[in-house]
Nucleic acid binder design. Structure first.
Lengths: 236, 236
DNA sequence: GAATGTGAACTGTTTCACAGCC
DNA sequence: GGCTGTGAAACAGTTCACATTC
């Protein structure tokens, strides 16, 4: 079983590798990958060793083969089906992100309890009634769902999702959810993140060149070619 | 120096503790905190020990004292000043989040390069020209900034922020940023997160009750009782 | 010489197990 | 008995150091 951190880095590697392909680069050294992804060369080599990818003593790693190898692990098929619950401001920002970007994901359905939204197509995705999660996801099965409803509704939404067969949840609401053990869950709590970084900002300010590198580097990342960030719905 | 993970959990504890205060609860046991925050009782006790908070053998921990103790560490004053760069869909969602919620944060300024937005007040915050980051943040100093611009612009924005004295960045764009060591940085790459969870969703579906704990719990709480599903959660 | 591949050491985090307290 | 506090063990993740290959 590949750990969460390795999976994260594979995604980051792939992003940079795609970049290299566009530039017609055929090979890459571990230290180049490292440099671009904000890691050490050793860690890169460990990761590649871990997934059983073999390089070449002279030329480093074949870009195309490595991309294929990572693809085999992540199995992205033609599009990862997702469902979004909660079409508020954040939910809409996410919908927009999908409608413009990455064909890598496929938004199957969205849900909300606002009568104004139910039935409408918002950012390219039809919005259904919250109560319809189970029936609709039974017809259009989805393994992964995104929760962007208010904290008070989150647990009940999660329960429905689990009943609908969802096995992975990205939870943007600031509450801890109780889900069965087989369900993977990732928490993105903006308030928590901002406060955490603010804490270390303050410390950095005081300590200056302190004991250790401070970087929190949650996800590390890389020039994802096609993916423009996404706050900006303007320019590029 | 308190580690990132402990800081995260302190924020989570505080959230539940505030809840307890509302319900007039005066004391709390480590296993209750653990239960609610998706952790183990040992880990809670370790954290409290780590920050030097002492409980009572009979009654557990005093809620009010613990809140005060955590507040002293996080120093939230009357409001953490923040700046937002990139008023696209995500940026607006974040602005709305602040204007409705937590007086804990104070959005000092927002920036964008869209002439349609510059000069306007959006979601309660005046939007300035991207080029004005340094002068405006020099007058209204901010230690922490949020980047929600497209990937192509992210590095140049980060450079300006650093020049303006920012020591902490939350980066929503999917690129690795080069910043001086004293700058704390946290990456939130939606695409990466969705794909990661999708990966483990698939694995969970197949493996069922497999080897190891499942929850990815990027930022915090994890509903966990015991060993469950997949390879390790650690760090983030 | 400049890469990769990898055992071994190290660091950070979590859990175990149990002493001490009420 | 059920709680806290904590040394010690276990574990995961990272880095070091170096043998190996071209």
């Amino acid at each position: 079983m590949i750990s969460k951190k390795v999976i994260e880095r594979l995604i980051i590697y792939r992003s940079f590798l795609n970049h290299l392909v566009e530039n017609k680069r055929e090979n890459v050294f571990s230290h180049q990958l490292a440099e671009h992804c904000g890691l050490t060369a050793t860690r890169v080599r460990r990761d590649l060793m871990h997934i059983g990818f073999i390089g070449n003593y002279k030329a480093g790693y074949r870009v195309d083969l490595l991309i294929a190898h990572i693809r085999d692990i992540l199995e992205p098929r033609e599009g990862i089906p997702l469902a979004l619950i909660g079409v508020g401001n954040l939910g809409r920002a996410i919908l927009t992100y999908f409608s413009r970007q990455n064909p890598q994901f496929r938004l199957v359905a969205s849900f909300d309890n606002d009568p104004q939204k139910i039935g409408r197509v918002i950012a390219g995705c039809r919005c259904h009634d919250l109560d319809q999660i189970v029936p609709i996801l039974s017809e259009n099965p989805v393994q992964t769902a995104i929760i962007t409803v208010p904290a008070t509704a989150a647990q009940s939404v999660a329960d429905q999702l689990v009943r609908a067969g969802v096995t992975g949840i990205v939870n943007f609401s600031p509450v801890s959810l109780k889900v069965p053990q087989h369900v993977a869950i990732e928490y993105i709590d903006f308030g928590l993140i901002f406060e955490k970084v603010a804490y270390f900002s303050r410390k950095s300010g005081l300590t200056q060149a302190s004991d250790k590198p401070i970087h929190t580097a949650l996800n590390g990342a890389v020039p994802r070619t096609e993916a423009s960030g996404f706050g900006g719905d303007h320019e590029n």
